[in-house]
Structures are given as C-alpha cells and as structure tokens.
C-alpha cells in the first residue's frame, strides 16, 4: 500500500509526467502522421464500402478510446472511493471531458459513415444507443464534479456515477453480439485474430496508438492544471482563515 501511495504523490506525478510528456507527444505525432498517410493514401478502398471505409480510421480508434477512458475513470473512481486518494479524483476529473470528446467523435463519424452505408444518420439499435448513453454518462460525470462547492464532495458523487455507469461498458462491447443491429461486429478484437487485411489493419492500429498517446499527453497536462487549481484553492482558504 505504501508503494501505491508513493506513486499517487502529486510531486512524483509532476516529475514523472514532465519526463514522459515529450515522448508521448512525439509518439502521438509520428503515429498519427504515418497512420493518416497509410489510411488516406495507401490502404485500398473496401470492396463493398468503397472509399467511405476510410472513416473507419478515425471512427474505430475514437470508439475504442471512449471505452478505454471510461474504464480508466472507473478504476480511478474505485481507487478514490476506497483509498480516498486525491490524485485519483484529479485523474477522473481531467479525463472525463476527453472521454466525452472521443465519444462525440465516434458518434459523429459513425453517423457520417452510416448515412451512405445504411441509408440513415441514426438508428436506435443496441450499439448506437449504448454509446449515446456513454456520452451522457460522461456529461453527467462532468456536471456532478462541478455541482458542489466542496470539490471533494463533487469528486465522490462523480466517482459513484462512474462506477455504477461502468456496467454500460461491457454492454457496448458485446451489444453487436447480443442484439440484432445494423452495426457490424468486431473485426479486430475477436477470437481467432483480426478479420481485416494488413493494409487496413496497420493504419487502424497506428491511429489507435496515436489517439492513446494523445490522450496520455493531454491527461498529464490536465492533471497538472488540476493540481495547480487545488494548490491555489488551498492557499486562498489559508489566506481567508488568517
């Protein structure tokens, strides 16, 4: 336990994040450049979907991130509720808007992909509806975090929402198998290996790596901002008490 607390120490976090930030930015920029090049210029059009399949290279990584970020928030929320750890609160608070952003990208690009392929912008099926619920969970988390004068109470309420809402994550993942849906089933993360040609798999994976390191870099910066805000608040309270 002592070790865990050592890593959750803001001073250590600040040192580590400062050292890792340039690497995260570098990896994100390079993988995004190569991923975009391969996805837009090298990868072939799909034999059924034609050039519209290129939407996949932003849609799928964004959707993966939407689930990954929520999972991270649920873990941080559990740590926060069990060990009352400040840094876990700040991570969840800093991650929520980014997760909402990824979910928004997944929804918007999915709509833009659905129109030419399915003939509709939107359909109330299991996959799309559960992802829309994920988006509202993110918004609810952001609202709860800011709903109290005491940031600790806001963080606790938001942490409970994040944990309760986590039930939605496996529902999203398996919605395409459990229910009839227009959405196609998984083609990369499935038993028996990816059912997608390497010329399409590579740009997809590179974009996923790019989105992941983009997220880590921004999370570092946003947690740094939250630490500064908490320090400022502590100084202001100390001043008011004098």
């Amino acid at each position: 336990m002592a070790n865990l607390h050592k890593f959750a120490n803001p001073t250590l976090f600040l040192r580590l994040s400062r050292a890792l930030l340039p690497w995260c930015v570098g990896i994100a920029v390079v993988t995004m450049a190569v991923g975009l090049y391969l996805g837009l210029f090298v990868a072939p059009p799909d034999y059924q979907q034609g050039e519209s399949v290129r939407i996949m290279y932003v849609h799928v990584p964004a959707a993966w991130m939407a689930l990954f970020v929520y999972t991270l928030m649920a873990v941080a929320s559990a740590v926060s509720l069990i060990w009352r750890h400040l840094l876990a609160d700040l991570v969840a608070k800093a991650a929520a808007p980014l997760g909402a952003g990824f979910t928004l990208i997944a929804l918007a690009t999915g709509s833009l992909w659905g129109k030419p392929m399915w003939g509709t912008w939107w359909v109330w099926d299991a996959r799309l509806t559960s992802v829309l619920i994920l988006f509202f969970l993110y918004l609810g988390h952001i609202a709860l975090t800011h709903a109290f004068d005491d940031p600790g109470r806001g963080a606790r309420a938001a942490a409970i929402l994040a944990l309760v809402g986590f039930v939605n994550v496996p529902i999203i993942k398996f919605s395409v198998d459990w229910w009839n849906t227009l959405h196609q089933p998984a083609s990369v993360l499935k038993l028996g290996g990816p059912a997608i040609h390497p010329t399409m798999l590579w740009p997809l994976l590179l974009m996923a790596v790019a989105f992941t390191f983009y997220f880590i870099a921004l999370l570092f910066l946003r947690v740094r901002g939250e630490i500064a805000a908490r320090k400022l608040r502590a100084l202001q309270l100390a001043r008011a008490a004098r």
Binding site: E51, T109, L112, W113
Partner: peptide
C-alpha cells in the same frame, strides 16, 4: 473519395 467526399472529409474534420 470515390463519391463519398461529403462523408469522409467531415468525419476527419470533426475529429
């Protein structure tokens, strides 16, 4: 984009 420009570019634009 093989006739899909109105969908592909806005998707990349939103992202």
């Amino acid at each position: 984009m093989g006739g899909y420009a109105a969908y592909v570019w806005p998707a990349f634009g939103v992202a």
